[in-house]
Simulated assay, not measured.
Amino acid sequence: MLVRPASLATWPPRIHDLFGQEGPLVLEVGFGDGRFTAELAQAHPHWLILGAEVSAASVLRAYRRLRREGIGNVRLYHGQGPFALRNLVPPRSLRRVIVNFPDPWPKKRHQKKRLLQEGFFRRLSTRLGEGGDLLLTTDHEEYFRFALEEAERTRLYRVEVKDPPEAHLRTKYALKWQEAGRTFFHAVFTKVAEDPMPWPPIRRYPVAHALLKGNLPEKLVLVKAPVVVPGGVAVFLEVARGEEGFYVLTHVEEEDLTQGLLLEVRKSTKGIYAGVSRFGSPLITDGVRGAVQALVRELERMGLEVVQDHT
């Protein structure tokens, strides 16, 4: 029921890989506590529903709800909706996307974080099947108007403003905002054309490490500053000394994907190993490989010599 990208045998996965069957695929972005998700799954038992949510606490609550209610046609992903859309959804396979009460990011300086922007709508068109749609429900009128304008700018959708379906008003936030007397806004964005720009899934690698010749340094000092890596940035947050070497807590940000991971610098039977720790099973992406390459460059400055490079 929980989707773990790092453990998937095929990348990107097929619908059958995720659900064990074929059927109409629906993506819900930001499922909260899962009450709407559960109701949707029960109302449409032939639908295969993939939910994406950034809150770990919400994922846990939704997971427990689905288990408790015996619902088997839902898969949950803890992470950003655009990442799930890009990497877990095959091209032209989606019947529907549902976005209920997204974060409006009302401050001007934060609006670039909004989900429903022109770039998202363009990329979404590559994943929606013919006649597929996105349903938006929100209480934030300015964001609603913003989303309408962004979608219309692409000329890839037929946009219809409607009354919200009753089921969409039974979410956690809908019930909360109804008590506050707020007004709700709803729109259906139906795909009529497709953006020609390809949007391939993120590339994943089996390993990212190097073997070096030389002595393990007594100290490993890394500047806590952004390092440019392919498709993003990495930051070495903290270095800790262990019995076999050093552990480097690292933050890597790429498009639609942010990871915290451990890098290791330690003795091995073949020399000094510098690379990704297995802890947490991170995705080995171009950005992660770039972080390892930056770490290896620092070790070379300390006098170590690369003898095998798998970065």
Rank of each mutant, 00 (worst) to 15 (best):
W177F: 12
L304Y: 02
E28Q: 01
E194V: 08
Q21C: 07
E160I: 00
G275R: 13
E244C: 14
V296W: 07
V26G: 01
Q178K: 15
R158L: 14
R109M: 07
A6Q: 04
F246M: 05
V3T: 00
Q178I: 15
V233N: 15
F120N: 07
V54P: 09
P106Q: 02
R109A: 09
P196S: 13
A210I: 10
K176L: 04
Q293M: 03
D195F: 09
R145D: 14
A274E: 12
P198N: 03
R122C: 13
R96Y: 06
P226S: 01
L237Y: 11
V99H: 04
R127V: 00
A234S: 06
Q111H: 03
L156S: 14
T37K: 05
V233Q: 15
H140G: 02
L134K: 05
R182P: 04
V276P: 03
R96F: 05
D163P: 09
E28T: 00
R14W: 12
E300I: 01
E253R: 10
E118I: 05
V228L: 06
T269W: 06
E238L: 15
L40K: 00
D133Q: 12
L88Y: 12
G129E: 04
L216V: 04
G290W: 05
T311E: 06
L85I: 07
H46L: 12
E194R: 04
F184C: 13
E179G: 09
V227P: 08
K270S: 01
E160S: 01
L2R: 15
D309R: 12
E305S: 13
E255F: 01
P217A: 00
R266P: 08
H78L: 10
R68Y: 14
L8C: 09
E141G: 00
L48V: 09
R204V: 12
H209T: 12
V288F: 00
P217E: 00
E53Y: 10
L249V: 02
L18I: 10
G34Y: 08
A9P: 14
R266N: 09
P201Q: 02
V252E: 02
G290S: 06
Q42V: 00
F101H: 15
G275Y: 13
H186Y: 10
G30D: 06
T137D: 00
Q178G: 15
V306Y: 07
D286Y: 13
R75P: 11
G131V: 06
L283F: 01
P90L: 11
H310G: 02
A56E: 15
E142V: 10
T37C: 05
A151K: 01
K172W: 08
V207Q: 15
R75A: 14
L8E: 10
D163M: 11
A187W: 14
Q293L: 02
K162E: 09
Y173N: 00
V265G: 03
E300T: 03
A208W: 08
G70F: 11
S58I: 04
I15Y: 02
L216T: 07
K267R: 12
E305F: 12
G129Q: 03
Y77N: 02
V159L: 08
Q21K: 09
V54D: 08
T258E: 15
